[in-house]
């Protein structure tokens, strides 16, 4: 009788060792890559870090001729545009998530809507930028003019609509983070044990009493994590903002005013930067990295806690 099984030859064992070392090395290389990115950006920013110190983040000049740099308007613009976008995206994202996780329509329609939202995520951001310039800006111009003329005393609409600016940028940004918020919130809603909802309905709650009082509170940690992750996406998004935000370093609460963000600043100034301006841009990149890493880590931790909290419920 022929046996097909044999002990591993010496070559097999050597190949086994080598391959396992290789995979081990690649796993550690991932950690090294993250650390190296942080190190390299910090190192490149160091000359500017030394020269401008903390005042870089509290002043608002960007003048490469006089070598004066500050990113306060960009930090403001980044946070403001992301915040506005998040406001729109949360309403629509959580709405869509509720719609596809509850049984409002037949499963076929739910799958269709889910695919549509996924398609939204697949469209490149530069295409959204182009669409924003030629569709969103002309579309909102009459409304924006009306808002300024009639409610101009209200600081939110205090400046005339200049075309590219905070509002069109935030609208397009909202469409871009909507898939993240919708998908992660949907996961959170689907993970709510069905028993809870059945219990509520069984006690006579209407559909929306069950959603508002039982399902949403149970999924709230996951939805909150989705919103924080969406915020992280919005903070780092570049192209749509570089094309739509107006690239002007002013600090204004008016949504009709042009503004600038950290990522748009990098996109516009890096290709032609020289000397200390490269250092200043690296510093700006460092600030952006710090903000996004912080937000993303908080989001992941919240999601991790949400899934840990749901473990016992199933």
């Amino acid at each position: 009788m022929v046996s097909h099984s044999r002990p591993p030859s010496r070559l097999d064992v050597a190949w086994d060792r080598g391959f396992r070392f290789l995979t081990w090395f690649m796993a550690w290389a991932t950690i090294a890559l993250v650390l190296f990115i942080v190190y390299k950006v910090t190192e490149s920013a160091f000359p500017a870090l030394q020269r401008y110190g903390f005042s870089f983040m509290t002043t608002s000049h960007w003048d490469s001729n006089r070598e004066k740099f500050g990113v306060l308007p960009e930090i403001w613009g980044t946070l403001y545009s992301s915040g506005l976008a998040l406001l729109f995206a949360t309403i629509f994202g959580v709405g869509v998530a509720i719609f596809v996780s509850e049984d409002f329509v037949a499963p076929a329609w739910r799958t269709l809507l889910k695919n549509v939202v996924e398609l939204l995520a697949a469209i490149p951001s530069v295409v959204y930028g182009l669409w924003g310039i030629y569709v969103v800006i002309p579309l909102i111009r009459p409304m924006a003019d009306w808002l300024h003329n009639n409610l101009g005393d209200f600081p939110l609409f205090g400046t005339p609509f200049a075309g590219p600016g905070m509002l069109p940028a935030a609208i397009v940004l909202a469409i871009m983070v909507l898939p993240t918020i919708a998908a992660v919130s949907r996961d959170a809603l689907v993970n709510v044990p069905p028993r809870l909802r059945e219990g509520a309905i069984g006690l006579g709650a209407t559909r929306w009493e069950a959603i508002f009082k039982i399902v949403l509170p149970a999924a709230s940690t996951g939805i909150f994590g989705a919103i924080v992750l969406g915020f992280g996406r919005a903070l780092g998004e570049t192209m749509a903002l570089a094309m739509l935000v107006g690239n002007s370093g002013v600090i204004s609460v008016s949504v009709l005013s042009p503004a600038n963000t950290l990522s748009a600043l990098l996109a516009n100034h890096f290709p032609e930067a020289q000397g200390i301006e490269v250092g200043a841009l690296m510093y700006a990149a460092l600030v952006l990295m710090g903000i996004t890493l912080l937000v993303n880590v908080i989001g992941e931790l919240i999601l991790w806690r949400a899934s840990a909290g749901m473990k016992g419920a199933h």
Binding site: W28, T30, I37, E43, R233, G236, S263, F270, N296
Partner: peptide, 24 residues
């Protein structure tokens, strides 16, 4: 830790990948 690092990389703004490649 590796998985956590991969998730951190997913959340890295794409322009920072460009900044890193520029610097290196």
């Amino acid at each position: 830790v590796v998985r956590f690092c991969a998730k951190v990389l997913t959340g890295l703004p794409s322009i920072l990948a460009g900044v890193f490649a520029y610097a290196t």
